[in-house]
Design a protein around this nucleic acid. Structure first.
Lengths: 201, 201, 201, 201
DNA sequence: CATGAATGAGAATTCATTCAT
DNA sequence: TATGAATGAATTCTCATTCAT
C-alpha cells in the first residue's frame, strides 16, 4: 500500500466526477483539482480523457465483479441457484458501491461519442461472457427432465432473471435500502422455484 | 407567409441539430451556420442557448399537439374512445414529424443541466394537463355502471394506454411504417373493448 | 478605412512574428498579444493557425504582386523587356517590403507540416501562372526571326532570368541597398541584349 | 561490446528521429520510446534536449570523419590528390550513413533556436579545421612553380572542390548509387589535372 | 430586425525537466 | 546507472454571449 497513491486519487476523483455529470460536462481540470494532482499526471497515466473514461469503466466492473464472485457459492452446482446468486450479488455490490453504480449508469446513457459507445459495449460484453462462463462452469445437469434443451433453458432463465432485475432496478432507482434487495430476492426465489418445478424431474 | 422567415430558419436548424446530438454537443455556431443567419439574431430571438433549447421543446410539443387535436373526434363523447384517439393520433403525429420525435427523445435523455431538466418537465406536464383537460371535457358518463369510481377508472385507463404506448414505442423504435401504427391501434381497440365491458353497464 | 482594423493588426502581427521565427516556434498567443487582440478574434478570422499562416502567405504575394504590376510598362510589347521588368520590379518590391520578404523566405524553408508545404506550393504556382499570363499577354512577335520556336524561346528566357535572379538573391541576401538592384538590372540588361541579338531578325 | 548499450540506443533513436523531423517536432518522449529507455536516462546522459541534439551532431561528424580518414592515403603528399580524396571520401561516407546524412542536413536547415545555430556552427568549424589541418600536414610543395602563393592556391582549390561538391550534391540529392560518386570523382579528377598543369612546374 | 466583430474563460493535450527510489 | 512518477506552463482551439452599427 503506497503512501502516495496519486493514480488512485485520479481514479477516485474520476468516478466521483463522472458519476455526477456526463462525459462532456466533466473537465479534466475538475478531476485533477479534485484529486489534488498536476494536470500532466492525468495524461501520464491515461493518454486521453476518453481512455481515462474507459479505464474507469473497466475498473468499475472489475470491482463489482470481484465483490460478486468473492465467496461465491460455487459449491452449489444447481444452475438456477447460481444464476439467482449472480443477479443478487451483483445487485448488492452495486448498492454497496453507489458511486460506481451511478457512474456505470451514466456511461450507459452516454451516446455522444461513438468511439466511447463502441469501446464501452466491448468491455461490457467481455465482462458478461466471463461472468456467465464462471456461473455455468461445472453445473450439475442430472436433475433435468430433458437434457436436450439445456441451451434453451439456460437462455430463458438468464433472460428472465435479467428482466426481473431490470424492472426491479427501474422501480427502486436511487433507493438504497436493504429492503429493496429483499424484494428482488423474493422475486428471484419465486421464479427459481417455478423453473425447477417445470424443468427438473 | 413571409419571404424571410429567419426565426423559423433558426428553429428548423435547431431541431435538426439537437435531434442529431446532445445539448452540449451542439454549438450555437452550428445552428446559425445551418440557418444561414447571423450569430446575433439567434440571441435576439432567444436570449440564451438554454432558452432556445426550451423554446424548441415547447414548439415541438405545440406542433405535435396541433396535429393531434386537428379534427379530433370530439363529437364522440365516450372517454375510452377519446383516450384511444389521443394516444393513436399523438403517435401518428410523432411518426410524421421524425425530426421532432428524435429531438424530443434527446431532450428527455438530457440530464446534464439541472435547470433544463426542471424547465423541461414543467413544460411537459403543462402539455399533458392541457391534453387531458380537453380529452376529458364534456364526457358522457351516462353509460358507466358506477359513477363513484370515475376518477380511479380514468387513471387506470390513462396509465394502461400510456404503458401500451411505451411498450409499443420501444418495440418499434426507428421503424416508421404504417403497419406499426395498425398494431398499436389493434392493441388499443382490444383494451378499449375490455374496459367498456367491465366499466359500462 | 476603419478606425479599428483589428484583422489588419492580426495580419501585421503575424507577418512580424512569422518573419522572425518558424511556424512551430510562433504561438498564436504571441500573435494576439502583439496585435493587442483577444484570443478568440484570431480564430474568428482564421479558423486555424495553419489557415492563418497560408492566408498570410497569400496576402504577402498579393502585396508583392500589386507593387510589381502597379504602373507596369505594358505599353512595351517586347517580351524580353517585359520579363526583365517583371524580375526587376518583383525584386524591388521584395526589397521594399523587408518583413514580407523575410516571411516568404521562411515559409519556403518550412518543411515540417506536409499540408502547409502542399498548400503553399499551390498558392505559389497560382501566382506564378497569373504573373506570366499578364506578362505574355499581347506580346509583339513581329521581330522574331523564326516564330516557330516561340515557346522554347519564352521558356529559355524565363529560366535564364529566374536563374540570374536566384544567384543575385543568394549573393545579396540581407543586403538592401539600391546598388544591389542596379547590379541585377545590369545583368538583366546584358542578357536582354544577348537574347534580342540571337532571336530577333 | 556491452550487452546493454543504453546510451547508444538513445543516440541511435535520436539520429532516427531527428533525421525525419525538425528539432521542435521531435519530442524526448518519442526518442525514449524508440530507444526503449526511461525518460530519466536521457537526461542523465544529456542534460537537456538541446545538449542531446548537439551531441548527436558532433557524434555524426565523428563517424563521418572516422570513415573519411580511415586508411586515408596520407602516403601521397600531393595537396591536390589529398583534397580530392577528402571530398570524395566524405561524400562516400555520407552516402554510406544515410541517416546521419539526413540528420546533418536537417541540423543545417534548423534556424529556430539561435543557441543551437551558434553551437552547431562552432562544432562544424572545428571539424573543418581539424580536417584541413590533417590534409595539409606534411605536404610536398617541391613541385610548385612558385611557393610564394601557396596560401592563395590552397584556398582556391579548397573553394573550387567545395563548389563542385555542393553542385553535385544538389544535382544528385536523394540518389544513392555508386554511379553518382563516379561522376563526382571524374569532375574532381579533371580539375585536379587542371590545377597541376597551372600551379606545378 | 439583422449583422458579425469582439471577448476571454476554459477545453484537452504536450512536453522538457526534476527527483526520489 | 536506471526508472518512471510528477510537475505546470504552454499550446491550439471552442464557445456562449455582448454590442456597436
Amino acid at each position: 500500500m503506497k503512501r502516495n497513491d496519486l493514480k488512485g486519487d485520479i481514479i477516485r476523483a474520476g468516478f466521483k466526477a463522472f458519476a455526477k455529470a456526463d462525459y462532456q460536462q466533466v473537465s479534466t481540470n475538475q478531476i485533477v483539482e479534485e484529486a489534488r494532482v498536476s494536470k500532466g499526471l492525468l495524461f501520464h497515466y491515461f493518454k486521453s480523457k476518453t481512455q481515462l473514461y474507459l479505464a474507469l469503466y473497466e475498473t468499475a466492473w472489475n470491482i463489482i465483479q470481484r465483490d460478486t464472485f468473492d465467496n461465491f457459492p460455487f459449491a452449489n452446482r444447481d444452475v438456477f441457484e447460481r444464476l439467482k446468486a449472480l443477479v443478487l450479488r451483483k445487485s448488492a455490490a452495486l448498492q454497496k458501491h453507489k458511486t460506481l453504480a451511478a457512474f456505470i449508469k451514466r456511461v450507459h446513457l452516454h451516446t455522444a461519442n461513438p468511439d466511447i459507445v463502441k469501446a464501452r459495449s466491448n468491455i461490457y460484453q467481455q465482462f458478461q461472457q466471463r461472468n456467465y462462463k464462471r456461473v455455468f462452469d461445472d453445473i450439475d445437469t442430472s436433475s433435468f427432465r430433458d437434457r436436450d434443451y439445456l441451451d434453451e433453458i439456460y437462455k430463458i432463465v438468464t433472460w428472465t432473471f435479467t428482466k426481473i432485475h431490470n424492472d426491479w432496478e427501474r422501480a427502486h432507482v436511487g433507493k438504497e435500502n436493504a429492503e429493496a434487495l429483499t424484494i428482488l430476492e423474493n422475486e428471484l426465489v419465486h421464479y427459481t422455484a417455478f423453473f425447477k418445478r417445470f424443468f427438473y424431474q
